[in-house]
Design a protein around this nucleic acid. Structure first.
Lengths: 158, 158
DNA sequence: TATGAAAGACCGCTCCC
DNA sequence: GGGAGCGGTCTTTCATA
């Protein structure tokens, strides 16, 4: 766990929300344009953004990369059932080492761990399933859910 | 530049990959710093980034927002089984209207649609399940998977 | 055709009101 | 919170291999 930056209880107002929404859509939007759009001065935009950075609301800026254009065509979710719930940390450590595993969730219910895997092909997915996941001792069984398409992908609304 | 926007066949080299990795970590990394790091000129960085934008590999820049700091503490996945596979477009349209639905996948297997939902509390999640999803006619049944923690969250490696 | 260097425009940061 | 000046960054242009 890394250190928490700033005050977690900073309450954002409508201006903050507007700024966030704009920057979530395009992080390079000039402050001057935001200022004009929201009828405040560029300095104010700067102050608000800085506050939200300090509060840890804004964690950073990332370029959004189109995975398909890089050849990552196959996306799937895999529900993992462990032999024992106590195996969680060891299983997780091994999943972290697999770069095809882009997300992992510790879940309640039917599965112990739920992961999202992205590969360049169905063949590569099979390789990951057979040669990477199956050999992990702590895993009892897995269930795979292949995604053919992702029609919705957005962030939470501030 | 004669390359069409969205050309899927632009092959990136090692320099492109390095630039991508850096910008995926921090989209505001100065070109001059990247130039120094990779032993090329700032102009070259600019040309490469522009190419990748044109090729559709770089889709844009987004600020990364900490959902928890905004109060979105609850994350869950919901597998949706439709009454008929033909209902997919109508069901999707209604899911799109729910801002709590941040991701949706069209999947093979047990479910027809698989969605990721983020809410501010368990109570709000229940509200979404009961008052938003259940009323959707096209849905036959749903299965909910609550995530207690997300230990891995990263992008595909270029 | 791709790279490297330099000049100009633009943006963000800071100070003061 | 608003406004202006400074410093830094991005972008563009041109020369070069």
């Amino acid at each position: 766990m890394h250190m928490e930056k700033g005050d977690a209880h900073y309450r954002i107002d409508n201006l903050d929300k507007s700024i966030l929404r704009a920057l979530m859509d395009n992080a390079r939007t000039p402050y001057a344009e935001l200022a004009k759009r929201f009828q405040v001065s560029p300095g104010t935009i700067h102050v608000r953004v800085e506050k939200m950075k300090q509060a840890g609301i804004i964690e950073g800026t990332r370029v959004q990369v189109n995975g398909k254009k890089l050849g990552y065509d196959v996306c799937c979710f895999i529900g993992i059932i462990l032999k024992s719930a106590r195996d969680y940390p060891r299983a997780l450590a091994q999943l972290e080492a697999l770069e095809e595993v882009v997300e992992a969730y510790y879940t309640t219910g039917h599965y112990n761990i739920f992961i999202k895997v992205m590969t360049r092909s169905i063949d590569e997915l099979q390789q990951v399933l057979i040669h990477r996941l199956q050999p992990i001792e702590e895993i009892q069984s897995t269930e795979t859910l292949i995604s053919l398409q992702q029609p919705i992908d957005r962030d939470v609304t501030p």
